[in-house]
Design a protein around this nucleic acid. Structure first.
Lengths: 150, 150
DNA sequence: CAAATTTGGTACGATATCGCACTATATAGT
DNA sequence: ACTATATAGTGCGATATCGTACCAAATTTG
């Protein structure tokens, strides 16, 4: 196994573990029945403005549209988003946050603040800031390659 | 949202996206019916020696033991691992790699080598090496905290 | 503008994840 | 030793993910 391969292999291995641990921490703070994708969608809608179509969201998270249909159905059933017809395209819908959706997202973030503060005592925020640019760049590169061949 | 929170939030967001992209690349190289957890188990068994019990593996990957039962059943059905009784504990089993299992793992890694080499043209292995120690340390810290409160 | 193609969304079925409950064995407590 | 508790694994049911097939509306094309 070439050196380069081993390095990337280790990198993705570590990233996979961290992802799993982070997900577990988030889900521990979410109410029963909500999982990471639900929160992620709420968060995305706050950040980029709600009113997106389901397909927009599926693309943003790179999941099949059928998966997004399912996730949105869950959010709607809990009254966290509202699905409205898209006035610009009768095939389509728009996803709007409800007050409950916004406040659930706020509350979850608030619950994470002490978590992160605690973690920062062992792994300082400065170190996070230091590693972020490389991660962002790697993500962008991998994302751009995604379309191309394989 | 405090600065620290925002930084960790961004960090885990990037990590989540990279994990998803890496997983997609791996699964594109796996034969029909095999997914990331299958490969991960094969790989783990090579690295730490096979003969582990299902529970060892569940702990190593921090998944519920029922999930591991399912993953192992899939690997066994495809002849990639062999389940034997554990001579030291009649409740328990041991998971052994078959030749097919070893060679599938080898072949998959071989298929990833050019992928990574290609990626390294845009994101050099040195940069991976540079970011690895911090990721490993973060993973260790988060892992250690897992048991404690929450 | 009619026909062909593309696009947004859902229904449905296959497989995955995981909690709960259960069996069989192992270990601890007295 | 005898009972109580803990541990290894699985069966089952609930929910998640995702591919295929499908419908309805939009767009393209001739």
């Amino acid at each position: 196994m070439p050196e380069t391969t081993g390095l990337f292999f280790s990198l993705f291995n570590e990233i996979g573990i961290i992802e799993q641990l982070a997900r577990a921490q988030l889900e521990a703070r979410l109410p029963e029945g909500l999982i990471t994708p639900h929160f992620t969608v709420l968060n995305h809608l706050v950040r980029v403005q709600d009113g997106r179509t389901p397909l927009d969201l599926a693309r943003a998270f790179q999941v099949p549209k059928t998966s997004m249909t399912h996730t949105l159905a869950g959010l709607e059933a809990l009254g966290l988003v509202e699905m409205r017809p898209n006035p610009e395209d009768k095939r389509s819908k728009q996803v709007w946050l409800t007050e409950a959706g916004r406040s659930l997202r706020e509350g979850t973030i608030a619950a994470l603040v002490p978590q992160f503060a605690d973690l920062a005592r062992e792994f300082p925020a400065e170190r996070v800031a230091a590693m972020l640019p490389a991660l962002i760049e790697l993500r962008q590169i991998m994302d751009a390659r995604r379309g191309r061949k394989g």
